[in-house]
Design a protein around this nucleic acid. Structure first.
Lengths: 263, 263
DNA sequence: CGCCAGATTGAGGACGCTCAATTCTGGTGG
DNA sequence: CCACCAGAATTGAGCGTCCTCAATCTGGCG
């Protein structure tokens, strides 16, 4: 269990804190409460599930390195990802208030997580109402993303779903602000299919479609965005649901997100 | 704005409180904080949207009467419901921490809601950490339901989705505990399609399928469940995600939910 | 009685799945 | 340096679920 002085822990927590502060007003004292959250590091190999179905968990996971995902399974064992989490995300902060998880967590790539005991989360929340609200808000943003995924699965076709996911992961990776046109997405086509409600075979075809249209290409674990505007167009993408900006313009338009330098 | 003495308001809030207490430990004082939440009643006709897309809301809605739903729309205006709310549900409690709603609320049937100003929600949460946690937890249960819907949309076929929705709405309506075999579901086939990611035409065919198989029938606004076991079987249903019981058995089985008296 | 929203049914077509074969890639050991 | 291997990616052919378009039917209501 890491103490307040642990540098690695503070580094991992700092990334999460930055995300929290993007969306909530937090005092210096609140920040210190977050940065000094106790916990333990744990690594998991790609493809391994680290929270099993129906398990009762006693700690929340902050992703420190790699890509993790929440998923459910149907009768036939087919998986459906319900959330993907990047470094700096709290993958299951909500388990602090609902420890009986009815979904599981899996490592999409090799992953390192920082596990904070629920007790510590509650103590921090109790010590600061503003922090309690920030935790709640963080979970709410995840719910907002889930809502957008529902829209994708229910009302968008395969190519649109894939393009939409690329847009989302690009923005969440923080590339758009930096004007970049590529980001890491260490997911196999099988895993992409599980995220999009498609088969790996069809994901492959849709990747080819985007590549041959000069819109985006996935090479190895990196996605290269060749045409931001058309990617957002195909993906029917509006970044409002990600709540990445503290204040967003009143216009409800579906403008492409801060396009990077095109070609 | 209703005051603490308003009987109708207390009645509406009491139903929500019962739901909160199902999942959290709340003191007498916490209960009174909830029951005395100020607000105003408002009615909306079936088919009308009462929170529009991108609108910034200043109050949370407790459903008092009727059926309401959250939804998103794709580029073509096709709707996808992301949540359905019954009387006693807080339809957008989360808006208290994330007022910029990127989804909208619509009245599936004639609806009466009790609108509680966000300010009041925050005051109550600030006055009682246990209550703050209960609010957070309530939102988390909604997120859990959204996760299960993702699984349905991504990995279940049309008949399974419909059967699953029937199971969920039956349990949430509180019929299973009462051993009943019918419940009100005032949704058109169009609306069911929007919930399930299907067209109204195909919903119609799936309804016929369930009816002709002697599993369930929708007559007007009521659903009659003819065979609980087979409905849960077809719907691939496990009620854990609803978190309706305070403690649930450690077995992760997919047992049908307290079947009503058959035939 | 006319009107309208919702429900019902049919026929044809498209999107995504299944099954299967093959190629590519990175890692391991001889 | 190369053979070997497993996992992943790629491609083809055929098929099934669900969609589209369209017509008809039903019940409530003015």
């Amino acid at each position: 269990m890491s103490g307040p002085g642990d540098t690695d822990a503070r580094t991992a927590l700092a990334r999460w804190l930055r995300r929290l502060m993007l969306r909530s007003e937090l005092s210096e004292r609140d920040a210190e409460l977050v940065l000094s959250l106790p916990g333990t590091f744990r690594s998991t190999a790609a493809g391994r599930d680290f929270v099993r179905l129906g398990e009762r968990v006693a700690a929340s996971c902050i992703i420190s390195r790699g890509l993790a995902a929440r998923f459910g399974q149907n009768r036939d064992g087919l998986r459906q990802l319900t959330a993907v989490h990047l470094p700096g995300d709290a993958a299951d902060l909500h388990s602090a208030v609902l420890p009986e998880s009815e979904s599981a967590l899996t490592a999409l790539s090799d992953v390192t997580i920082y596990q904070v005991p629920h007790e510590a989360v509650h103590q921090a929340a109790q010590a600061s109402p503003a922090l309690a609200r920030a935790f709640w808000r963080d979970c709410t943003v995840d719910a907002s993303i889930a809502g957008e995924w529902l829209l994708s699965l229910g009302r968008r076709d395969a190519s649109s779903r894939l393009a939409h996911l690329f847009c989302e992961m690009a923005l969440r990776s923080g590339v758009a602000g930096a004007g970049q046109d590529r980001f890491e997405l260490p997911m196999t086509q099988e895993q992409l299919g599980d995220a999009l409600g498609l088969t790996a075979v069809h994901v492959n075809r849709m990747l080819r479609l985007l590549r041959e249209a000069g819109i985006a290409a996935k090479v190895g674990t990196t996605v290269e965005i060749l045409d931001w505007a058309r990617l957002a167009e195909v993906g029917d993408f509006d970044d409002a649901y990600l709540h990445l900006r503290r204040e967003r313009p009143a216009t409800g338009g579906s403008a492409p997100p801060t396009p990077g330098a095109g070609g």
